[in-house]
Simulated assay, not measured.
Amino acid sequence: MTQYVWGYLPEYEKERDDILDAVDTVFRSGKLVLGPSVEAFEREFAAYHGVSHCVGVDNGTNAIMLGLRALGVGAGDEVITVSNTAAPTVLAIDAIGATPVFVDIRPDTYLMDVEQVAGAITERTRCLLPVHLYGQCVDMAPLEELAAKHGLPILEDCAQAHGARHHGRIAGSMGRAAAFSFYPTKVLGAYGDGGATVTSSPEIDANLRRLRYYGMEDVYYVVSTPGYNSRLDEVQAEILRRKLTRLDEYVAKRQSVAARYADAFAGTDLRTPVTAPGNEHVYYVYVVRHPARDRIIEALREHDISLNISYPWPVHRQSGFAHLGYREGSLPVTEAAAGEIFSLPMYASLSDADQERVIDVLHGVLARL
């Protein structure tokens, strides 16, 4: 039972007719690149988030990268974010020649510790990049206040927070722009790669559209600003359109699965997720914590239950980012969490029977520790 491999298969069986119809609709349209499905999805995804514009791109990494460039961030600039994230968040910063600057995380939610951001701002800081991790939002009000004070834009990383809300505001609507991934395991997942950047700024929207299409604007084959080939595929856009109508249903199912886990492990020494005040958690992953993490994972593997760790190696301690100069102990809360956190199977199509089996086996393992 590997959530990252098998999670979408029950969903596909249930939605197969609609998914195949989406594919057939595109193939019969004769419009395979930046056609009506992309246009419609962009319009509908923007409306869902209460923003004016959405630009579909080829993946979530480029959604961040193009978002940064559209905000004017470039070589030599600094972007404040966290190390407890998927590497693509930081790779997008590195790709434009900017420098990621890390702050530590909160020990309860594993989200950006906003209180540390002010101390990380320098004259080179050009953007704040909060990561709405695991399915819930960073504490945005003090971050927005800090951004306004220093004249800095906020780019939200919403790859793991489709539909999440913070004091009633939906993830993706609180920054100058926001980036999304539609990787198949996401709360709103495509059947391949995909991403989008949203904004309510006409200027940023225009920048994004230019950047995703080679840097071309009004005249084809004429590049006004060097850009990329970073377009959302028509097939994925049409599939995402269909699935967007079911996003709230997916969220409700994930919340139901999370509630069962919370009830099942109440009173044990397994630390279950903490939802920050004002947050509506959508549980992209269900991250728990235990000092005997590795023994637990190995014991469950013997029962054919595979668990993921998000994330076992903080970005700042990975060899590919050694040039940033962070040493062991630089981000103590992040590093401590990385040694103990892991994720229980979590997806909207997880059956009650499969979840009960996970719960029963894990209870037995915890009792033997």
Rank of each mutant, 00 (worst) to 15 (best):
M1L: 11
L9T: 15
Y12R: 08
Y12F: 15
E15W: 06
R16A: 15
D18H: 10
V23L: 14
V23A: 11
V23W: 10
T25L: 11
L32Q: 02
E42H: 10
E44R: 15
A46V: 07
H49L: 15
S52R: 13
H53D: 02
V55W: 00
V57R: 07
D58F: 03
N59W: 07
L66F: 09
G67C: 10
V73Y: 01
A75Y: 03
E78W: 02
A86G: 14
A86L: 07
A86R: 11
A86K: 13
V90W: 06
L91I: 06
D94V: 14
G97H: 04
T99C: 06
F102G: 04
R106M: 12
D113N: 14
Q116P: 08
V117G: 12
G119C: 00
I121K: 02
L128S: 02
P130F: 06
Y134G: 01
G135I: 01
Q136T: 05
V138M: 10
V138N: 03
E145I: 01
L146G: 04
K149H: 11
I154E: 08
L155Y: 03
L155I: 08
L155M: 06
A159V: 08
R165G: 05
H166K: 13
I170Y: 03
M174E: 07
R176P: 00
F182Q: 00
F182H: 11
T185E: 09
Y191M: 07
G195Q: 13
T197S: 09
V198C: 01
P202N: 05
E203Y: 14
A206C: 05
L211V: 06
L211G: 00
M216A: 13
V219P: 00
Y221K: 09
V223I: 15
S224G: 15
R231Q: 12
V235P: 04
V235C: 06
E238N: 10
E238C: 06
I239T: 04
L240S: 03
R241S: 12
L244V: 10
R246C: 09
V251I: 15
A252Q: 10
K253I: 03
Q255S: 07
S256H: 14
T268S: 12
L270I: 02
T272I: 11
T272G: 06
V274Y: 15
A276P: 07
G278D: 13
E280D: 10
V282I: 14
V282C: 08
V282H: 09
Y283P: 05
Y283I: 05
Y284H: 04
V285S: 08
V285P: 00
Y286W: 05
P291H: 07
R295P: 00
I296M: 05
A299H: 06
R301W: 09
I305L: 13
I305C: 05
L307Q: 05
L307P: 04
N308R: 11
S310T: 09
Y311T: 15
V315L: 11
R317K: 07
Q318E: 13
G320K: 06
F321K: 01
Y326H: 04
R327E: 15
G329E: 03
S330K: 01
E340G: 04
A348V: 03
D354P: 05
V361R: 07
V361P: 01
G364V: 05
G364Y: 00
R368H: 11
